[in-house]
Amino acid sequence: MTVFACSGCDTVLTAPVTRVALPVLAHHVHGNGVTSMGVLMEPGTFAVDPEHYGPPWRRWAEVGADEARARGLYAPVFSVSDGPSHAVVLAPGDVRGTVFIPERNDGFCCGLDGRDGPNLACVGCGRPVATRIDDCSLWQAVWVDPRAVHRLDDVAGPPLAVAWEAVRQERAGTPPAEPSGLWSPLWEAAVGAALARILAASGGRPVTVPDGPVAETFRRSLDLLLPTDAPARSLVLAGPGLPSVPTDLALVPRHPVTGETWVASRSADAVPLEYDVWRHLAFHHGRWPVPGAAPMPDLAFREDPPPFAPTRPFRPDRSVFLRTLARLPAVREPWLRDVYDHVVAVWEGPFW
């Protein structure tokens, strides 16, 4: 486990935390309302974002294609961060030894959005060290400036499960619908990211999906975004605990701790999907992620409460789809760049 301390005075700034994979929701903006979203990170964990984070920001025209490509951006985006790379993100409840910087407590309407940079200072020396985020539409988190802290490793504490079998036993997956009747933001973001990777791996050919939960989640989007007049490639769910099935594309889990992608067969191209969504798709049989997609037998799940029913058809998250696609080298291919530009310009299709 790790504790982060101020580089200026060694004041301890966090509880002991363990590193996990950066969540797909890390830069996700969802809806609007009088309260902020939930907490991004689970208690006792942290993640590292390899990309640049926070202000100052530069427009795409100022950055230019060459510099953007060096940063891993292969299609135009609205703006590019000139903040530090490898920022550390953790739950607000795991922060210690900080105070707010009054003149930097700006937000859009309901909380703090970090527009002016770090808004938390070390209580020991006053050095700006982190940015608290809790405005509406944003996931609650604290982003620690890597230039302002150093790590104290090997703090005593239980390690997180790493083996795939241990993860399967400890994490049951996330249902697709929330009690409010809305689709889970995790599902919308995770499917948006996976959809971008499926398109990149398709080579511009149609992708077929067997009937079932994966088809109900991905088929409509694939049919709208890919051509229909070419030999198709197949996509199936694969991973730990599932039988091996011949396929062209394998939708496999992304490890929630290490971030590694499950290794598919040599004959299939692996497409990673957030573990908690993959787990539900793979093992929650009979509970399709679309209302009424398949009735359950009378005696099935009789001890379970009825699943929450979403009030509208499923749509992947458009912003996560575009953010992911812009960072895939395949987007430089003319056909995929046309898809990207169309989704940027037009609010329709699978996202609306």
Rank of each mutant, 00 (worst) to 15 (best):
G124L: 04
L235H: 09
S85P: 01
L242R: 04
A163R: 15
R220W: 13
R233A: 15
D106I: 09
G111L: 06
R337S: 11
P297R: 08
R233F: 05
A194S: 15
A270P: 10
V80H: 01
G286Q: 08
P185G: 03
H30D: 12
P246Q: 10
A194Q: 09
D338W: 06
A141D: 01
S36Y: 00
L90H: 11
G117R: 14
P313I: 07
H255C: 08
G181A: 09
L226S: 02
V339M: 02
G203I: 02
A15Y: 02
L186N: 01
D116W: 14
W183G: 07
G173I: 07
E178V: 06
S184W: 01
V144P: 02
L226R: 01
V63K: 04
G292Q: 05
A141L: 04
R327L: 09
A200M: 06
F308E: 13
V129P: 00
Q169D: 13
T174Q: 10
W347G: 11
R171I: 15
A194F: 09
G117Y: 12
P307A: 04
A121F: 07
G181K: 07
A194L: 12
V123S: 15
V3A: 13
P102K: 06
A161S: 15
L152C: 13
V24S: 10
A130E: 05
L273F: 09
L322D: 00
E216L: 10
E170W: 10
R323M: 06
A326Q: 05
E42L: 11
R59I: 06
V290C: 07
W278C: 01
C110K: 09
V48I: 14
D94R: 03
G157T: 11
I133K: 00
F314Y: 07
W60C: 00
A177I: 01
I101S: 02
P210V: 14
L322V: 02
L325H: 03
L40G: 04
S265L: 14
A264T: 11
E274Y: 01
E62L: 08
P297K: 06
A5V: 13
R323E: 14
A47I: 10
S81I: 02
D338Q: 13
P206D: 08
V257R: 12
A201H: 09
F78R: 14
E303R: 12
L336K: 03
R323L: 07
P76F: 06
R287C: 05
G93T: 05
W288H: 15
P175L: 00
P329V: 09
G97V: 10
V339S: 04
E103S: 15
V89T: 12
W278V: 00
S85L: 00
E303A: 15
G204C: 05
A189M: 01
L242Y: 07
G157E: 12
V99G: 13
W143N: 04
C122V: 14
W183M: 08
D135E: 11
A141C: 09
G192W: 00
P305A: 11
G83I: 03
A5L: 10
D229C: 05
T228N: 09
P256R: 03
P253H: 04
W335H: 12
V263G: 10
E67Q: 15
V12M: 10
L281F: 11
P185K: 01
A326K: 02
P76E: 09
V167W: 06
G204R: 02
V320C: 00
A5T: 12
S319E: 02
W57L: 14
V263L: 14
V331F: 02
L325K: 00
G292H: 06
P291I: 07
A177C: 12
L249S: 13
R115P: 04
V346E: 10
W352I: 10
E170S: 15
